[in-house]
Amino acid sequence: MNIAILSGKGGTGKTTVSTNLALALNANYIDCDVEEPNGFLFLKPKVYKTQKVMVEYPVIDNDKCVSCGECVNVCQFNALAKVRDDIMLFQKLCHGCGACEIVCKYNALTYDKRQIGKIEKGIVRDINCNRGILNIGEPMAVPVIRELLKGLSDGVNLIDCPPGTSCNVVNALKYSNGAILVTEPSQFGLHDLKMALELVKMYNIPFGIVINKDDGEDNIIKRFCKEEKVRLIGTIPYSKDTAVIYSKGEILYDDLHHKRIFDEISKTLKEVLSWT
């Protein structure tokens, strides 16, 4: 069972829910927020393996290139440009599709590889923890996410998705059998929750909502869930104690009060996603 944990916006508590549920469910934790992977700051696993993430990019042989511009015309990502009599390459825009090499009649293009990030694998409390890290300055996170999600372990995998509803989230959802949407009781939270819901519905997978920083009132998120008949999996109260534990980089699940909260969420989650 692969469970995606996502939110329509950043700052709702997605990683908080992911890391603590990993302990409550004794599940594997996979941090796909490769631009800002913060889950390891809380779980603190012992990293035992690191691997590079490589992507291909074209190399132009200037002795063979006649600057005909065919490679420029075929590139859908504007990674190649013709400037007077030269062909310029923008490595970080290249998606490695290979079209430029195919259309080159002079065999002036070959492919090489470069590193755009890395994957770290660790373990803590008998839980496997994997995360991807995108190199600073790299614009494309998807290759790191895809490599991270290859060959997921058996059992339950909690996939901590990137924030928002971009292609980075879409690529994480492709591997999921169910989803948890984390939101907060605010107008911004509701607005972005609606976008995340539409995305999850496209994949026709079971899902439920967790409200973080809940005020205990009949707020706009709870009313929305009732109106749209969306299952509310649980709530995490808005509390100074929660903020203090979080600010220290500690796991909420180690606190008895919060342990009860996440144990209850995990119990309801199993009912919503229909797995035992």
Rank of each mutant, 00 (worst) to 15 (best):
C167P: 05
I30K: 09
I221W: 02
V34C: 09
M140P: 00
K201Y: 13
K92T: 07
K64P: 11
V142P: 10
T16R: 04
P185H: 14
Y253P: 07
D63R: 03
E138A: 04
R231D: 09
R146K: 15
K213Q: 15
H258Q: 05
P162D: 11
L89G: 04
P163I: 01
T268P: 01
I245V: 13
I265K: 01
T15N: 15
F40Q: 15
G39S: 12
P163A: 14
P185I: 05
V34M: 08
L181T: 06
I30W: 13
N130A: 11
L93D: 04
I245C: 01
K52W: 12
N171V: 04
P206E: 02
I221C: 05
H257C: 14
A243R: 04
E217D: 07
C71I: 03
F90L: 08
K226E: 15
E70D: 13
M195T: 15
G137S: 13
S7L: 00
L21Q: 09
M1K: 04
D192T: 13
K64W: 02
L158V: 01
S247I: 06
G216A: 08
G8T: 05
L134A: 14
S274I: 03
D218F: 00
N204Q: 15
M195W: 03
L148Y: 07
A4I: 11
C94N: 05
L158S: 09
K64L: 12
G155H: 00
Q91M: 10
I127K: 02
M1S: 04
F224M: 12
E227A: 15
V55K: 13
Y48M: 10
L21R: 02
Q51D: 14
F42W: 07
G39T: 05
K52G: 07
K105S: 14
V230C: 09
S7R: 03
Y175K: 15
T15D: 10
F90Q: 05
T268M: 00
Y106E: 13
Q115K: 05
T16Q: 11
E101W: 07
V230N: 09
E56G: 12
C68V: 09
I119D: 08
R260P: 01
K92P: 00
K222N: 06
Q91S: 08
G151F: 02
I205F: 08
S239Q: 14
K52C: 01
M54F: 07
S153E: 08
R146P: 06
Q76M: 13
K201L: 09
N219Y: 00
I60V: 12
E198W: 11
I123K: 05
I236D: 14
V182I: 09
I211F: 11
N78E: 08
N177R: 03
K229R: 14
L149Q: 06
W275Y: 15
R223W: 02
I136P: 05
E217M: 01
E217H: 01
L25A: 08
I127E: 03
F90V: 09
L43T: 04
I209W: 12
A243P: 10
D215I: 00
D86M: 07
H257S: 11
V103R: 12
L199S: 05
T15Y: 14
